[in-house]
C-alpha cells in the first residue's frame, strides 16, 4: 500500500476520519499489531505523507467500487463486502487478506422508539443463526452468531473474513470512541494540507 515503486498507481482509502487508514499506515511503518494502540498519530501522518499524492479518496462504499471497477484506482483499502459484490458481478478484482482489519457493527433501537417490540423482534430475527447465515452469504461479511456458519454453504463460509484469521487485526473501537474528536481534527487538517 505504501510502496509506490513496487506498486505504482493510485490507491484508494476511506475519506472520512474513521478506524482503518491510520492503522495500516502504522503497520506499514513497522509498528507491531499488538502495539498499535494508543495510536501514534505523528508517525501515521508522516507515513501517509509519503503517498499522499497517490491517494484517491472514496467517500462511500459505492464510490470505492466504482473507483476500483473503472481502474481509476489500482488498489486500495475497501470493505470486503464491497469487493465481494464486485467479484460476484464478474469484475476482475481480488482481495489480499494479509493483515486484514476487522470491526463489528451494531444494531441499535433508540430509547423511546415507537415500535420497540417490533424492533426487538427484528433484532432477534436478524441475529438468529438463520438470519445471520443469509446476511453473511449475501454480503460477504462475517456473521455475529457463531451458529450461523453451520447453516451456510461451505464455499460461502470460505469467502468470509473468518477464513483469514492469520494476521487479522481487530480495530480498537473503544480507543476510537475516546479519541474520536482529537483524531478527526488532525485527520481533516492533514487532508486539507
Amino acid at each position: 500500500m505504501f510502496d509506490t515503486k513496487k506498486f505504482p498507481g493510485k490507491r484508494t482509502f476511506y475519506k472520512w476520519s474513521a478506524p482503518g487508514v491510520i492503522e495500516i499506515a502504522l503497520l506499514a511503518d513497522g509498528v507491531p499489531a499488538d502495539k498499535l494502540y494508543p495510536l501514534d498519530l505523528e508517525r501515521a501522518f508522516k507515513k501517509l505523507d509519503t503517498i499522499k499524492s497517490d491517494i484517491v479518496w472514496w467517500g462511500g462504499g459505492a464510490e470505492s467500487q466504482q473507483l476500483i471497477a473503472s481502474g481509476e484506482a489500482t488498489f486500495g483499502q475497501l470493505w470486503n463486502g464491497r469487493v465481494f459484490a464486485l467479484e460476484k458481478d464478474g469484475a476482475d478484482v481480488g482481495v489480499s487478506w494479509n493483515q486484514n482489519l476487522t470491526a463489528a457493527d451494531v444494531l441499535v433501537v433508540p430509547k423511546g422508539a415507537k415500535n420497540k417490540d417490533a424492533a426487538m423482534k427484528f433484532l432477534a430475527a436478524a441475529s438468529s443463526p438463520a438470519g445471520q447465515a443469509k446476511f453473511a452469504e449475501a454480503s460477504g461479511y462475517a456473521p455475529i452468531n457463531t451458529k450461523a456458519k453451520a447453516e451456510m454453504p461451505a464455499d460461502a463460509v470460505k469467502a468470509l473474513p473468518d477464513a483469514h484469521v492469520d494476521g487479522q487485526i481487530n480495530l480498537d473501537m473503544n480507543y476510537w470512541a475516546e479519541h474520536r474528536d482529537e483524531i478527526a481534527t488532525r485527520w481533516y487538517a492533514w487532508q486539507a494540507k
Binding site: K15, W16, A184
Partner: peptide, 19 residues
C-alpha cells in the same frame, strides 16, 4: 476537487455531518 482544495461549504458540511 481534492481534499487539499477544500472550500468553505465543504468544510461546513464536514463539521456538521462528520464532526
Amino acid at each position: 476537487g481534492g481534499t487539499s482544495n477544500m472550500m468553505l461549504a465543504e468544510m461546513i458540511a464536514q463539521m456538521i455531518q462528520s464532526l
